[in-house]
Computed example of a mutant assay.
Amino acid sequence: MNRAPEFWWQKDSLASRALWPLSVLYGAIAGHRMYKRPRLRSEVPVICVGNFTMGGAGKTPVAIAVVRMLLEAGKKPAVLTRGYGGRLKGPVLADPAVHTAAHIGDEALLLATIAPVVVGGDRVAGAATAIEAGADVLVMDDGFQNHSLAKTLSFVVVDAAAGIGNGLVFPAGPLRAPLDTQLQFADAIIAVGEGPVDAGLRAIAADYGIPLHAAVLAPQNGAEFEGKRVLAFAGIGRPEKFFESLTACGADVAGAPFSDHHVFTDAEAAKLLSRASSEGRELVTTEKDHARMQAGSGAVQRLCEAARLLKVSIDFVDEAPKALVLAALANHTARNAKKGWAKVK
């Protein structure tokens, strides 16, 4: 996946105007799919963590935070994910001892360190695999626009500062479907980032009566980089956020951005190693990038071994998201008993 074009974040541009007819067609198809009746309502709760837009907003860290909430509540969660960047179609139960990012994608490898993960594009088949493996609640990492499996609760993650960009649908803008359609399926918005939430996003949430909760990506080991000269490299949705986090930790940062889910070549790895050496900087990367490099060889293997990690977690400003999760579990149990929803098959 290439990096998002700059005009996606501009309110008016020649590029977005030229692509508008295509975005109308894409939006009509995507919106229609969201209105389709779900193929199945699961006998276990399904909590979705998605986003309105393409590109990084902090979705996977929020999914991890939700999984940890469920574990603390004594539940046995499993994560459903497409496994973007991996070649296995699934459904397959992720095994970090066997699978690499080339098999199941970097996000699945990272999530599998927290809870069981089922990789596959067919969410209904993935749900059946997860439940058979013992899951009593499912967390969908992405899939907000996917209609196949009914959701008990849908969190939509948005970058607090960037909001929804120019508000247009792909390819004219970053939206995955028309915003007014997506808002009808959102139960809460999680705005991730330091500083004030985008005013437009806040107004939209208020207009639709959707609760908006703030969260920050909090470095877990940031003190390790205070006063250090680092060469930070990242292939995520918005590498700049990673660089800013390191700067906030007190590091002197030189950044090397790559596209989302970027697979590093030997030449790129060798260049990063050489640059770090010549500039007297320590190499630092993200957990997702590190997971993607683990099965590499040659210069990629050396880069993986040399790079230190800035580990981050999601900190919610208040307890409201946890309360929503716990309420969703209780409500699902009550509705399931009353309506006798079919089991996943």
Rank of each mutant, 00 (worst) to 15 (best):
V192D: 09
E305S: 13
G31W: 11
R229W: 03
A276Y: 01
L201N: 08
A162N: 10
H213L: 14
A18H: 06
N166E: 10
F316D: 04
L25A: 15
P257Q: 05
R68I: 02
F185A: 13
R281G: 12
K59D: 09
N336T: 14
G126A: 14
G255P: 01
T247I: 04
A269P: 02
A30N: 14
T286G: 15
M69N: 02
F225W: 11
G296C: 09
G31S: 13
G85K: 08
L246W: 00
D12S: 14
P178Y: 11
V124H: 06
A206R: 14
A4I: 08
V117M: 10
G86E: 07
I236E: 06
C304T: 04
C304R: 06
D187C: 04
S278H: 05
E287F: 00
E107Y: 06
K322Q: 12
Q182V: 06
L111C: 14
A256R: 06
G250R: 03
G165V: 10
T152S: 15
V197Q: 09
V67F: 07
H290W: 08
P21F: 11
K338P: 00
L93R: 11
S154I: 00
S13T: 11
N221C: 10
K322G: 05
A330F: 00
A248F: 02
H32F: 13
D142K: 07
R176S: 09
F233P: 03
D106P: 13
N2A: 11
L217I: 06
G120H: 08
G134K: 05
G209E: 08
L70M: 05
A306N: 04
P171R: 10
P116H: 13
I64M: 13
A337N: 03
R33A: 15
D142Q: 05
V312S: 03
Q182C: 10
P196D: 12
A101N: 12
N2W: 07
S148Y: 10
D106M: 09
A65T: 01
A115K: 11
H262A: 06
G56V: 11
A160R: 03
W341C: 06
R275H: 00
T333C: 02
A188H: 01
L201D: 09
H213C: 12
L88I: 07
D95I: 02
A130E: 05
W8V: 12
V44Q: 07
M54H: 06
K228M: 15
P257V: 00
P116C: 10
H213A: 13
I164F: 14
I190E: 08
E132L: 14
G120L: 08
Q184K: 15
P257Y: 00
A28Q: 12
T113Q: 15
A205H: 05
R41N: 10
Q294E: 14
I210K: 06
E282C: 10
R229Y: 02
M293Y: 01
F185R: 15
Q301P: 03
V46D: 09
R87V: 07
H213W: 09
L71S: 04
K311I: 05
L153S: 04
G31K: 13
G90R: 03
K75C: 11
Y208Q: 11
N146I: 05
P77K: 03
V118G: 06
A248P: 02
A248T: 01
A101E: 10
R37Y: 12
A161V: 14
S154K: 01
